[in-house]
Computed example of a mutant assay.
Amino acid sequence: MEKQESKYGFNNLAETWNGRLAMLGFVIGLATELLTGQGILSQLGLM
């Protein structure tokens, strides 16, 4: 029998995608801040 890894919960695939999406969000946030001249919090109306 082959061992099948779960597709849900904490596993290597989920952690890899979590890291990739976090890096993508950081780069998009930084690019938006550079283009608009406003911080992320001020763009959201929190400051």
Rank of each mutant, 00 (worst) to 15 (best):
M1P: 04
M1T: 03
M1S: 04
E2Y: 06
E2F: 05
E2I: 05
E2A: 04
K3L: 09
K3I: 06
K3W: 07
K3F: 14
Q4S: 09
Q4L: 07
Q4V: 10
E5A: 03
E5G: 01
E5W: 06
S6A: 12
S6T: 09
S6Y: 05
S6R: 12
K7G: 12
K7L: 12
K7N: 14
K7Y: 10
Y8H: 08
Y8M: 03
Y8D: 06
G9Y: 05
G9H: 05
G9M: 01
G9N: 01
F10H: 09
F10E: 04
F10W: 10
N11A: 03
N11C: 09
N11S: 04
N11P: 01
N12K: 11
N12H: 10
N12E: 12
N12P: 04
N12F: 13
N12C: 05
L13D: 13
L13T: 13
L13G: 02
L13V: 13
L13I: 14
L13A: 13
L13E: 14
L13K: 14
A14D: 07
A14F: 08
E15W: 12
T16Y: 15
T16D: 13
W17L: 15
W17D: 06
W17S: 07
W17E: 12
N18G: 08
N18F: 05
N18E: 07
N18L: 09
G19W: 06
G19K: 11
G19L: 10
G19Q: 09
R20L: 15
R20N: 07
R20H: 11
R20K: 14
R20F: 15
L21S: 02
L21T: 04
L21V: 03
A22V: 08
A22T: 12
M23V: 04
M23A: 15
M23E: 15
L24Q: 15
L24T: 14
G25S: 12
G25D: 13
G25F: 13
G25K: 13
G25R: 15
F26G: 02
V27Q: 15
V27C: 14
V27M: 15
I28H: 08
I28K: 08
I28P: 00
I28F: 11
I28Y: 09
I28M: 13
G29S: 12
L30T: 11
L30I: 06
L30N: 08
L30M: 08
L30H: 07
T32I: 13
T32V: 12
T32D: 12
T32W: 08
E33I: 01
L34S: 02
L34Q: 11
L34T: 04
L34R: 05
L34F: 06
L35H: 05
T36W: 05
T36P: 01
T36K: 01
G37R: 01
G37K: 03
G37I: 01
Q38I: 00
Q38Y: 06
Q38N: 05
Q38G: 00
Q38R: 04
I40G: 00
I40W: 03
I40N: 02
I40R: 04
I40Q: 02
L41F: 08
S42K: 11
S42Y: 02
S42H: 10
S42F: 07
S42M: 05
Q43Y: 07
Q43T: 01
Q43P: 00
Q43N: 10
L44M: 09
L44Q: 10
L46N: 00
L46V: 12
L46R: 04
M47Q: 07
M47V: 14
M47T: 11
M47S: 11
M47I: 14
M47E: 12
